[in-house]
């Protein structure tokens, strides 16, 4: 840049030109961003909703439609349209005849690399976790990401016992992770050799989340049945 302009002091009136240029470009750029946003926003929203719906259908086998519910003030569940408050929304899944199959619940916690976000299916009739899906994970490829693929690990979540104690206020046995091959009770999560930390994290996330949600949902099952008929 052997340009002479650079060493010359700024000529008077030049700053006006600079301002003009910056504002001009700024407005042009803002316009382009807004147009793109307007154009893509509905598609993005649809994609995200579809991805979530796909996950819900995966964790609740055999359902035909889903509805979102939000936890209300008196521990009851109210059907909502669109997005609810974070951490309070569950998705009810209904079978072909409109019967309640189960609830899909989102949970998250610290994995090995970053926060893990999972979705699991809870069946209040069987009092069990019946499905599991990883929504977001940055776990090490080839190791930690076995939590999404390992068939033995996924078999944990076909019927994971989360039955309540006698006064129905808490779980009889909290879900706990155990070492690979040492699962003895239906509420234990068999971990993966070579992905111990990630699979343990899943067990613990499930443990915390079921502890909170299972009693709430079990005691308010009617909400989903009655509102589901509408």
């Amino acid at each position: 840049m052997s340009d002479k302009n650079q060493i010359q002091p700024t000529a008077p009136g030049n700053s006006g030109k600079m301002l003009q240029a910056m504002v001009g470009i700024g407005i042009l750029c803002a316009l382009m961003i807004v147009l793109t946003f307007q154009g893509t926003a509905p598609v993005i929203k649809k994609n995200k909703a579809e991805a979530l719906e796909k996950a819900i259908f995966k964790v609740l086998p055999g359902i035909e439609k889903t509805k979102a519910f939000q936890l209300g003030q008196n521990d009851n569940f109210v059907q909502i349209e669109g997005e609810g408050e974070e951490g309070k929304v569950v998705y009810a899944g209904y079978g072909a005849n409109g019967e309640l199959v189960g609830l899909a619940i989102e949970a998250s916690g610290q994995g090995y690399a970053d926060i893990l976000r999972i979705l699991y299916g809870y069946d209040p009739g069987k009092q069990a976790v019946i499905g599991f899906y990883v929504l977001e994970s940055k776990e090490t490829p080839g190791l930690g990401d076995k939590i999404e693929k390992d068939p033995n690990f996924l078999a944990n979540f076909e019927a994971l016992d989360v039955s309540l104690n006698e006064d129905q206020s808490a779980l009889k046995n909290k879900v706990v992770p155990v070492k690979s091959g040492e699962k003895e009770n239906p509420w234990e999560v068999d971990c993966i050799t070579g992905a111990t930390i990630s699979s343990r994290a899943i067990g613990n996330i499930l443990g915390e989340s079921t502890q909170r949600w299972a009693p709430l949902i079990y005691n308010n099952q009617e909400d989903f049945v009655t509102q589901g008929e509408q």
């Binding site: 302009n5 910056m22 700024g26 382009m32 946003f37 598609v43």
Partner: peptide, 28 residues
Amino acid sequence: FIPKQVRIASYILIIATFVTMTDYIIQA
């Protein structure tokens, strides 16, 4: 149109705009 003194700022602004647009498009 772009004066020399503010050229880098202008370039960054232009690039950032297209990156944001790309981000939306890929999401879509």
